[in-house]
Amino acid sequence: MSRLNHDELIASVVAAVGASADASGAADLVFDKGSIVVAASADDLKGAFKRVKKIDGYRWVAINRADLFGANPLSLGSKAGIIDAHGEILKNADIPRRKV
């Protein structure tokens, strides 16, 4: 599959998992399993994982599958999962911690 740009990746994830735009603006998309931040290029990965750490609940970063090796190390400690354009889980999201 060819590399998708930001808008194409959003459209693909929406079609795959039934997500919708996040009204709060904290994430790009929301669906029944949490919030999704989209990182369409390797340059967007660091910012996406920084952004997703601030979101409560289950969190995901949607990437192009080719960026998995760059995304996986950044996901450590973020509790965020990683999904591809087809909605396939590449890394499970961890259970969110309760805020005390």
Rank of each mutant, 00 (worst) to 15 (best):
D67N: 12
I55F: 03
N5I: 08
D22F: 04
G81T: 06
I36W: 00
A48G: 08
L4S: 04
I89M: 11
H6N: 13
A48W: 02
N64M: 09
L9G: 01
E8Y: 07
G47Q: 09
G57Y: 05
A85G: 11
L76A: 14
N92G: 12
N72G: 12
K46S: 15
D22M: 07
I89H: 10
K99Y: 11
K91G: 05
H86L: 15
I83N: 00
R51N: 08
A71N: 07
A11M: 12
N72P: 07
A26I: 04
S20T: 06
H86G: 15
D43E: 14
G81F: 00
G18N: 06
S2P: 12
Y58Q: 07
D94E: 15
A80D: 01
L76W: 14
A27N: 03
A93S: 12
A11F: 09
K50H: 11
S12F: 06
E8Q: 14
G87P: 06
G77N: 06
L4F: 04
H6R: 15
L4K: 08
R65Q: 12
G47C: 10
R3A: 14
G87Q: 03
L74G: 03
K33D: 09
F31T: 00
N92F: 11
V14I: 13
D84V: 03
N5A: 09
N92C: 12
D84R: 02
V37F: 00
D67A: 11
I10V: 10
E88Q: 14
R51Q: 11
I55K: 02
P96H: 06
I83T: 03
A15W: 09
D84I: 06
I82L: 11
A42K: 12
G47L: 10
V30W: 05
N92W: 11
I36N: 06
I82Q: 03
V17N: 05
A26L: 13
V37S: 04
R65N: 11
P96K: 04
S24M: 09
S41N: 10
R65D: 10
A40M: 05
K33I: 00
L9A: 02
L90V: 03
A26N: 10
K46Q: 14
G57K: 06
I83F: 06
L68C: 09
I10P: 01
A85C: 11
R51F: 01
D43R: 14
A23S: 13
L74F: 08
R65L: 14
